[in-house]
Amino acid sequence: MLAQQLLNGFVVGGVYALFALGFTLVFGIQRVLNLAHGAIFMSGAFIAYYTVAAGGPLWLGLALAVIGSGLISVLVEIVCFRRLRRSGDEEFGGIISSIGASLVIMTIAQRISDTQVLRFPFETFPVIIWRFWGLRVSALQLFMLALALALVVVLGWFIYRTAFGRQVRAVTQNERAAMLMGINPVRIHMQTFFLSGALAGAAGVLVGLAFSSIRYTMGEPFLMYGFVIIILGGLGSIPGALLASFLFGMGQTMLTAYMPSAISGLNEAFIFAALFLLLLFRPHGLMGREAAGALRGRR
């Protein structure tokens, strides 16, 4: 029973990681909270659903979702943050403009889906279930875990092993200095947003497959959880976000499984109280640095 719950928590944690890594990547480089991230995640699920509904195979839907969400994310960067960054007001202004973008994307999705809850057709992903050592593992769970881990590894390789990643990290540390070294920050910003959106889109498809409820509001709880995870891990810290995603996924699954039913309604309260307490003892998250959360311009 315990092993089963740990496994379930690990799978959920993998999906959270995909969502949160993009979120924290954007925060790390721009110091903005992209509140349209939940809507971008939702658009991934939508693109995949409509590809499959139109008769396309699932892999094509997944690929289109990853690319499409990445492009939407780049569009959000251009429309919502670029101009504000120039005047130095992106910290607070960016909150408003990304809420605006989120509303636009969600309204379009609502119109397309006619406010219905969409489901992938049965057997879009083959239903295969293995049982061993008392565990019950579905092929979908394995696929989710494998895809999440693969994308995380690819992201890690991009950020820590390539010239592109070096440039991203340079812009994160100091945009002016990076510019003086001949890096074009505008291009780096766009590429970061693409990566971030693509990861969120993949997460959207996985959630759509696993919980078979694709809805225009499906991004909202994830935006909240994403907040919690990137703070828990320490803002802008990629290893921190990864650790926090799995902790959060496991914690949530464990609470759901083992809480006595009389107080199971308080699960959310316990999770957020734990976050609150953790922040008191580690004000910068598990792996965050001192300066990361400070507001830059308060004028």
Binding site: F227, I231, L235, E268, A273, F276, G285
Partner: peptide
Amino acid sequence: RLRGVYQAIATVAFVQIVYSV
């Protein structure tokens, strides 16, 4: 004890706690 965005998130947690209770 907190600053900036960390304050924001801690207070979001507070709002969520009030809601769940």
